[in-house]
Design a protein around this nucleic acid. Structure first.
Length: 303
DNA sequence: GGGCGAATAT
DNA sequence: CATATTCGCC
């Protein structure tokens, strides 16, 4: 049993993040279109209203859909199927698209793990800390497994024996080999990750500022929304949103800089002002082959 | 029963 | 190969 839920914050000694670090710690997996389509308001909703989203009886995430922005074609598809199922909301049995771990998302992941400490870094906690709505525990668990594998690999690879793919540099900046540079190499791995984790002192933190820190297991959507509602001032003003790019074939990740800014506006009557031209969009990852949809995340902008 | 972790499947 | 799903254990 992990009673971390009760006092997980009692062991924050590894590396206390600055409030600023935690603040931007919130990302959404739901595209604006999707959100609109589902009547869920975004964190930055102008309306002073409280959470307009009553707890969906049973539907963690109807259709995470596809961040494909241009049109909700994909979503429309799902919606159609959903309505056909007989209810209003899409059936709960709908499968969500594969999650694509973009460097930014992975960065958040590493960030969360780093702040939690390896020992406390369990899927649920990580998921909560990441505050990426739409992210499931399974998503994190799966990725965490791979990440641990990666770390282990790195730990073993310090001697630089000429075995296989070159050297991981031992510790920091392990990416030296073009072949090794896939995803994990793109994020800095906190040093203490490789350590046996130094014995901590009993440092207690003055206060904790975690966005989605509720004990209630609610839907991620609501969790995020609620968190925002509870601390609206925590939300940055800028809308650094969508920016999904398919998996880079090369593996060279640059900044998610905007590629283009098409699609001026949709039919939303409200103001859709976007002070930041940060609309990135890329629909090159259309994996139509096999009918596989890919879900991508957007960068928070902090990096 | 929930959740974590590793194995296994797609 | 990257994620998802399943399975056993705590």
């Amino acid at each position: 049993m992990r009673e971390d839920d009760s006092n997980w914050f009692s062991r924050w000694e590894e590396e206390l993040p600055s409030p600023g670090e935690l603040m931007p710690l919130s990302q959404t997996l739901i595209t604006p279109d999707l959100a609109l389509a589902f009547d869920i308001r975004n964190p930055h909703s102008n309306s002073p209203q409280q959470i307009p989203q009553p707890p969906p009886p049973s539907n963690p995430l109807p259709s995470p859909g596809n961040p494909n922005q241009p049109n909700s074609a994909e979503f429309a598809d799902s919606a159609e199927l959903g309505s056909g199922t007989g209810g209003e909301e899409p059936a709960r049995t709908l499968k969500r698209p594969r999650l694509v771990w973009t460097p930014q998302l992975h960065k958040r992941f590493v960030d969360a793990v780093a702040h939690l400490g390896i020992k406390n870094a369990v899927p649920k906690t990580i998921m909560q800390l990441m505050s990426v709505d739409g992210l499931t525990r399974e998503n994190v668990a799966s990725h965490l497994q791979k990440y641990r594998l990666y770390l282990k690999r790195m730990q073993g690879l310090s001697g630089g024996s000429g075995g296989g793919s070159g050297g991981a540099g031992g510790g920091l900046a392990a990416s030296a080999d073009p072949a090794t540079e896939h995803l994990f190499a793109s994020s800095p791995v906190p040093p203490h990750f490789l350590h046996p984790a130094r014995p901590n002192s009993d440092h207690f933190l003055p206060y904790v500022q975690v966005p989605a820190l509720q004990h209630h297991h609610h839907q991620q959507q609501m969790a995020a929304a609620a968190a925002v509602a509870a601390h609206p001032q925590l939300q940055p003003q800028y809308h650094r949103q969508v920016g999904h790019f398919g998996s880079p074939p090369n593996g060279h990740f640059e900044h998610p800089f905007l590629t283009r800014q098409s699609q001026p506006h949709h039919r939303m009557g409200a103001s859709v002002h976007n002070p930041v031209p940060g609309y990135v969009e890329d629909m090159e990852s259309a994996n139509a082959a096999g009918g596989r949809k890919v879900l991508t995340l957007f960068p928070t902008g902090d990096d």
